[in-house]
Design a protein around this nucleic acid. Structure first.
Length: 841
RNA sequence: GCGAAAGUGGCGGAACUGGCAGACGCGCCGGACUUAGGAUCCGGUGGGGCAACCCGUGCGGGUUCGACUCCCGCCUUUCGCACCA
């Protein structure tokens, strides 16, 4: 009996895989490719079993596809720029580069000990100049195409930390770090014009057949397409006009006032021209100081004030008051709306509060709304009333005609608006990619020439957490010469959002050492798209949307010819401990290293795959891991027990009679091959793949016990002979299949067992086992017989029996007869399965 | 509030297109081996009943020969969206 020593095997095989460059691949158009990718990691320092699960799922797929004959690209890398390293530097003084590189080294060791089949020679870290050079290259391409531009915008500002916060760092309007209330602040920022691709990004969601619906829905909501109209309301007595956007032009005859966002350009104009500018400006300031998050989410009381001016409703030609309202968003549409209180709940509340006029212009059907009795807006579509020549039209028709007429009269046009906004990429931070732009007093904004890339991040910078860009305090970085005129100039001191890094890293993996281009077209054309991509649902919008955007930009730049980067997407569930997400502060982190030293990588891998389907959340369980370990021991003992027999026979099918047990084991073997293959490749139900393997092992134990030698637990007979050639053959077939099929889950053990079975050259010396439908076909089937919907009997009959014969046998069965006593058979249904359903009364 | 998904033994979960509910594992119970076992192997394990049998997939209806699966209504949970004009 050979002892199972998982830690020894882990080390042995991991070293051999590295030495043999087992998982390294080259572009080879002659071979079918498979690109398997898991979302790369932020190097926080420690992998926990939640990470482990994601990487395992990809590894199962990569290893299976490799054995199925594909040229498999399975790389890994590090999303290495980011705030945490810089924040740590502010507190501890350790330079972000130092802490990041040491974290990467530690986590890499952890992943390697799990035996994940990565092409480590392609490893990338986004904080290296050889990588971020191409962030800058891409930025310049975007700038040339008008897709990168600079403008003033409002950002989240934490007054205590004196720093800008990303949207996702603002939790319920508070700073995630210090809990201060976040303010709005205006800054000059660089933006990527993702809105230029809004329509395409939305439309192409329908082509993502192998994405979870949920993710597509979230992206659809995020893009938020609305069809409507832009209309001009001239300001009475001036040449000014208020532009509004509405999706309900059919209600325009009920538009009894106009609302402006506090930030709207006309507001300041009106204030300046008013008798008391200070009073109006104070009001505006008050609105703008309101909690930004609350304003965006509607958690504020609606308030407004009258500007004293009026505008002309272009359809009624009547003057309506212009108010400023705190709930109107400057960043959506035109920053101004026509208010239709009768048919919009928000406008209704506002009108009631300030006693503004309400006019019903739609009859939705049912009771007719009246201004006197209504308690909420009637927002449904219906029939237009009191709407001049449009009265009597249905909403849909009204909308079409009104837009047509507005265009004819040059007072408006049909327009599509998106909720999606351009992507602000400037960060007033150090640990990121420097934005490759130069400001010259003479020439203005000048891009850094391509041959001067990368603009390297200087090593020295102070981390005070003051909020201004740390690069600004490095004179040798800031001061430069203008590439255009050669005069003195200043560099941009902001760095890029780290989402830029992750928006194209999957392309870099195709050609990770290219120094001239982000990647060569030839390599990307071969490997892309990513065939299988897995990661957390928390990236459903940002990362996945940005990546889809970048892929299109690179297409338009001419580097690639595809639209969508990720063919099949799997969003894996989290690993919980005591019902909560693992985190250091909760003290419920399960450390993979301690599991590895106790059970080895294979047991851990098998457990996280077996406990639930990949998409589901799982609750960590030590006893579950223990069970998986026991199963591996069971496999080990079984294979070890039969090694000499398996080695002594070959793949020649012996001539002669088979016993029922032998036939049954062959059937089980082939059924298992079929199920495991489909479970991995098609359904991604890795838990049921493992249970099929367990069933095969259980059957092999039972089969072994019935042989002359006996089973693995009967140590005393372990050297006994088998005698029958057929028995040796089915054992060989079953054990070979078992070792092959289990190898994606437990690769270290499988390699060792494969070697013990007499094979040199590793598991790839033999292809994935193939399913034989003839062998798997049963000779007899058990057919349930239902009487009035309840199973009353089971018949064992030869497979392939005709329906007529089957029906006759079912009705003749004594148990069935008993249940039919005193009843008349009304109908007999022969269902696939097969199954017989008798209706009697 | 709107939208989506889910609800199955003591627990994690199976049941693929409407066809044998509870595969597989954990836990528990019993047995074998053993000085001993928390190792290993074998057996049992949804509830009720001595049994034939009855009940059972959140609740209430419906469609069907047949429903965990489809339809309608409700309850609960989770997730997403939420003043976007």
């Amino acid at each position: 009996m050979t002892e199972y020593r998982p830690q020894h095997l882990d080390k042995k095989w991991q070293e051999r895989w590295t030495t043999d460059r087992e998982f390294e691949v080259e572009t080879d158009p002659a071979k079918p490719k498979y690109y398997c990718l898991e979302m790369f990691a932020y190097p926080s320092g420690h992998a926990h079993v939640g990470h482990v699960r994601n990487y395992m799922i990809g590894d199962i797929m990569a290893r299976t596809k490799r054995m199925r004959g594909y040229n498999v690209l399975h790389p890994f890398g590090w999303d290495a720029f980011g705030l945490p390293a810089e924040n740590a530097a502010i507190q501890t003084g350790m330079h972000p580069e130092e802490s990041t590189l040491s974290n990467i080294a530690h986590m890499k060791g952890q992943l390697q000990r799990l035996g994940i089949s990565y092409a480590w020679e392609r490893e990338i870290a986004t904080c290296g100049p050889e990588y971020y050079k191409f962030n800058q290259w891409l930025f310049l391409k975007m700038y040339e195409r008008g897709l990168a531009y600079r403008r003033r915008s409002t950002v989240n500002w934490c007054p205590k930390d004196n720093t800008v916060l990303a949207n996702e760092q603002v939790i319920d309007g508070l700073c995630w770090r210090c809990g201060s209330s976040v303010e709005a602040r205006d800054l000059e920022q660089w933006f990527f014009r993702i809105t230029a691709y809004a329509e395409e990004l939305l439309a192409a969601l329908g082509t993502l057949q192998e994405w979870p619906d949920k993710v597509a829905v979230m992206q659809r909501n995020w893009i938020g397409r609305s069809e409507g109209a832009r209309l001009t309301f001239p300001v009475s007595g001036t040449a000014d006009a208020v532009e509004i956007f509405t999706t309900r032009i059919d209600t325009i005859f009920g538009a009894t006032f106009v609302l402006l966002a506090p930030e709207h350009a006309l507001v300041e104009r009106f204030a300046a021209e008013s008798p008391d500018p200070a009073a109006l400006r104070a009001k505006v300031r008050q609105f703008r100081a309101l909690d930004r998050e609350a304003r965006l989410t509607g958690a504020i009381e609606k308030e407004g004030f009258d500007t004293g001016r009026t505008a002309i409703n272009p359809f009624t030609t009547k003057a309506v008051p212009i108010w400023v309202a705190n709930f109107v968003l400057a960043e959506y549409g035109t920053g101004a709306i026509m208010a239709v209180p009768a048919h919009d709940q928000r406008d209704y509340e506002f009108a009631r509060k300030y006693s503004l006029p309400i006019r019903v212009v739609i009859h939705p059907g049912g009771t007719v709304p009246s201004v006197e009795t209504m308690t909420e807006a009637a927002s449904a579509y219906g029939t237009l009333v009191d709407s001049g020549e449009y009265s009597g039209l249905e909403s849909a028709t009204g909308i079409t005609r009104m837009i047509r007429d507005a265009e004819a009269r040059d007072i408006g046009k049909g327009e599509v608006q998106y909720r999606l906004k351009d992507w602000g990429v400037s960060r007033q931070r150090y640990w990121g990619t420097p934005i490759p732009m130069i400001y010259c007093q003479r020439d203005g904004i000048v891009p850094v020439p391509y041959d001067q890339l990368p603009v390297e991040l200087p090593k020295v910078a102070q981390f005070t957490g003051r909020g201004d860009s740390p690069l600004g305090s490095v004179p040798e970085f800031v001061n430069c010469t203008c590439p255009s005129c050669g005069g003195p100039a200043r560099r941009e001191t902001d760095t890029m959002d780290t989402f830029v890094d992750s928006s194209w890293y999957f392309l870099r993996f195709c050609d990770p050492t290219n120094t001239e281009l982000p990647f060569a077209t030839r390599d990307a054309a071969y490997w892309m798209p990513v065939d299988f991509y897995s990661g957390g649902i928390e990236h459903a919008i940002l990362h996945l949307l940005y990546s889809r955007f970048f892929t299109r930009v690179l297409r338009d730049v001419g580097l690639i010819a595809m639209d969508e980067p990720f063919k099949r997407l799997l969003t894996q569930g989290m690993v919980l401990k005591d019902g909560a997400v693992m985190s250091k502060s909760k003290g419920n982190v399960v450390d993979p290293d301690s599991m590895l030293s106790k059970y080895g990588a294979d047991a851990l891998r098998l457990y996280v795959m077996f406990v639930a389907p990949p998409e589901k959340e799982i609750e960590w369980s030590d006893s579950g891991l223990e069970g998986s370990f026991r199963f591996l021991l069971r496999v080990w003992r079984l294979v070890d027990h039969w090694t000499d027999v398996v080695r002594a026979v070959d793949s020649t099918v012996p001539v002669g009679e088979w016993t029922d047990a032998e036939k049954a084991l062959r059937r089980r073997t082939h059924e298992t091959i079929k199920r495991v293959t489909a479970d991995i490749e098609e359904r991604m139900h890795l838990n049921t793949a493992v249970s099929s393997l367990m069933e095969l092992v259980n059957e092999l134990y039972a089969f072994s016990d019935a042989t002359p030698r006996g089973g693995p637990s009967r140590v005393d007979t372990a050297t006994g002979v088998v005698g029958r050639a057929q028995t040796g053959f089915v054992l060989r077939e079953a054990i070979h299949a078992l070792v092959m099929l289990i190898s994606p889950f437990a690769p270290h053990m499988a390699e060792e067992l494969w070697e013990m079975l007499g094979h040199a050259g590793g598991l790839r010396s033999e292809p994935w086992p193939s399913y034989d439908a003839v062998v798997a076909a049963p000779e007899e089937v058990v057919v349930p017989v239902q009487i009035n919907g309840k199973v009353r009997a089971r018949l064992t009959v030869p497979a392939g029996l005709s329906e007529k014969e089957l029906e006759a046998r079912a009705l003749a069965d004594s148990t069935v007869q008993g249940h039919l006593a005193g009843k008349t058979v009304r109908k007999v249904v022969m269902a696939k399965g097969p199954l017989v359903s008798v209706v009697a009364s």
